[in-house]
């Protein structure tokens, strides 16, 4: 951080003091918003889950009872587990599709590549609720896939609608554009000459990927994965519309506990647990950005 600031100041030739003031003014608004709309409510929520009324309903005191309930309740833990599972599986599938796709888009030119790129970016412009209903029409029972299979004499598949695979498929489709865009940005740092040189000395596709491409796009993969994980962990629309009734992912579970079970303390406890998981991934993301900056500045 320090060396980027000094080198930036020197390069533009601006006096450091005024640059610092402008910088502070620029960050003041977002920092104020983060403090009032994110940090403050989170603080309140954590306090609310630890400062509970006594058994007679009066006299608030420190208590970890709501966390003890969450971590001893098989149903809540099942919901936490399916959230972790869905996030991990979706991210893995997404990377397995997005990495080869972005490598293809980086090193191929021509009409076919342009079409593939347009298709890959397209989901960015489709709201997830529309996507969820389209999913039911296409992959749902008696949907388009079923009709096509029946017409060519193949047995019908078991629809992923209302199973744990429903949200996974939705997430992969919905998050593909952002992941591809981030990876493509990372791949632009891999020079074509480096790849060609490796090929000239006889490196195969796998070796080229492992030794030339992967080291350069590692940070981009981490950034893309962090974005996806953070989005999926608290996702609501896909698990709500496409997932099974139980186990529930944390998003619908929190909403139901708050709005239907009318148990705000437990809903906040679920939210704090979810937040801690997200915060851990957030820390990864920030660390990777910082490490990247340091490397660039060197």
């Amino acid at each position: 951080m320090t060396d980027t600031a000094t080198s930036g100041g020197a390069a533009t030739g601006r006096p450091d003091a005024s640059g610092r003031v402008t910088g502070l003014i620029l960050v003041a608004l977002p920092v104020a918003m983060v403090m009032t709309m994110i940090v403050w409510p989170i603080g309140l929520a954590i306090l609310d889950t630890l400062w509970l009324p006594g058994p007679d309903g009066t006299g608030a005191r420190f208590s970890v009872a709501s966390y003890r309930f969450f971590f001893s309740d098989g149903y809540s833990l099942g919901n936490l587990w399916i959230t972790i599972w869905t996030t991990a599986v979706s991210t893995a599938i997404l990377m397995a599709i997005a990495i080869p796709l972005s490598i293809y888009l980086r090193f191929r030119t021509g009409r076919a590549a342009a079409v593939v790129q347009a298709l890959a970016i397209f989901p960015l412009f489709v709201p997830s609720i529309i996507l969820a209903y389209a999913f039911v029409r296409v992959l749902g029972p008696n949907g388009m896939v079923d009709i096509i299979l029946a017409n060519i004499g193949l047995p019908r598949i078991r629809s992923p609608y209302l199973t744990v695979w429903g949200p996974v498929i939705g997430f992969v489709w919905d998050n593909l554009p952002l992941t591809v865009v981030i990876l493509l940005a990372g791949l632009s740092g891999v020079s074509t000459q480096a790849v060609e040189a490796a090929r000239d000395v006889g490196a195969g596709r796998i070796a080229t990927f492992r030794h030339i491409i992967l080291p350069r796009i590692g940070p981009s993969i981490l950034v893309a994965a962090s974005f996806v994980v953070l989005g999926l962990f608290s996702a609501f629309t896909f698990p709500y519309l496409l997932g099974p009734a139980a186990p529930e992912m944390m998003g619908p579970f929190m909403q139901r506990t708050f709005g239907d079970v009318l148990d705000p303390v437990q809903a906040r406890t679920q939210a704090v647990v979810t937040f801690l998981f997200c915060a851990a991934f957030g820390w990864f993301y920030v660390r990777s950005i910082a490490a990247n900056r340091r490397r660039m500045a060197r």
């Binding site: 029972p141 629809s159 199973t163 519309l241």
Partner: peptide, 22 residues
């Protein structure tokens, strides 16, 4: 039940499954 124990997420979603003949 449908799919050996699936439950839709709303009134309209059940109607959709009936309409699709599922």
């Amino acid at each position: 039940l449908f799919d050996a124990g699936a439950y839709t997420s709303g009134n309209a979603n059940s109607i959709q499954l009936l309409a699709q003949g599922a």
